[in-house]
Design a protein around this nucleic acid. Structure first.
Lengths: 154, 154
DNA sequence: CTTAAATATTTTATACTTGAAATATTATTT
DNA sequence: AAATAATATTTCAAGTATAAAATATTTAAG
């Protein structure tokens, strides 16, 4: 390998590393603000918000495994989060006819109303945080991030 | 507010929300792979890697508060991570002459060597994950993410 | 039908994370 | 100098997260 090649590769290597660190920093920055808002303004947490969001989008509820699959977290993790959401009265575990292993988890009415409140607030926070980004820039950003996940299913 | 205005605002609102969700998904996806690699190939974790990385870049070591500031996590968090790194022999707490409140934390020789190994592996994983991104695209991506953090200090 | 395999979920042990309270020490004000 | 404020760190309680083991149940194979 020539010296030139080494430099070219090394250069490209560094710029991609910097890209990743920037993605991470931006993501952490936004996430931190949202977590803080959820906690202070709505006395809830991001994991709970995420779970409720997934349940809100489904009609008949989701199985535990479907939830952990959708959110890409472990099964045991979901168990704990649902436990606490049930305690709060936001979520219900319903036994499934014909398969005693499974529970179908769904939002209560209280949970649905609560989530709609969260979601509205969430959208407006995000708009404030990203207000410097024009519509076109937002689209460009999505397109670039799509390249990274091009050969992935999600 | 006219119906047209409402729609324009709503449209822009949604594209920014989608941008955020895409940033989050990409970040989580990459982070998950790195965490898994660190655990399986090197029997360590991302928080430990991050702490060691900050210590590696400093000459004389860092105070606990400087560490938590640099990584933007809580003080209590750093205490636990350093406890475990000390147990592993990767890190040292050194009393500071003249201020008995403070400890200066720094890498041991073992820790320095170990981190260099981690860092090399890390850079190559990131390059593989982001291989679809050209140099120019990587630069564009950084530029767009910079817009989001434009009026921030970090 | 009964053993074995597959599926669904919970439990466990360990680690990370936070915000708030507690400790300890140093600096500043009266 | 004594009281107060500021700084540095740890401890604490609660929640989040993982992988692996344990349970329970259903399905498939022999």
């Amino acid at each position: 390998m020539t010296q030139l090649n080494k430099e070219v590769i090394s250069k490209g290597s560094k710029i991609r590393l910097r890209s990743w660190l920037k993605i991470l920093k931006t993501s952490n920055y936004i996430e931190k603000q949202i977590r803080e808002k959820l906690r202070k303004d709505h006395n809830t947490t991001l994991p709970r918000f995420d779970v409720m969001s997934a349940l809100y989008r489904s009609n008949k509820g989701l199985k535990m495994t479907e939830l952990s699959g959708a959110l890409k977290v472990s099964n045991g993790n979901i168990t704990g989060i649902i436990d606490r959401l049930v305690q709060d009265g936001h979520v219900l575990r319903v036994a499934v006819e014909g398969d005693r292993r499974t529970n179908l988890v769904s939002l209560t009415n209280k949970g649905r109303l609560q989530f709609e409140e969260y979601a509205n607030a969430h959208e407006s926070w995000v708009n404030i945080i990203l207000e410097e980004l024009s519509d076109q820039e937002a689209k460009d950003l999505i397109k670039l991030l799509d390249i990274i996940s091009y050969n992935r299913r999600n």
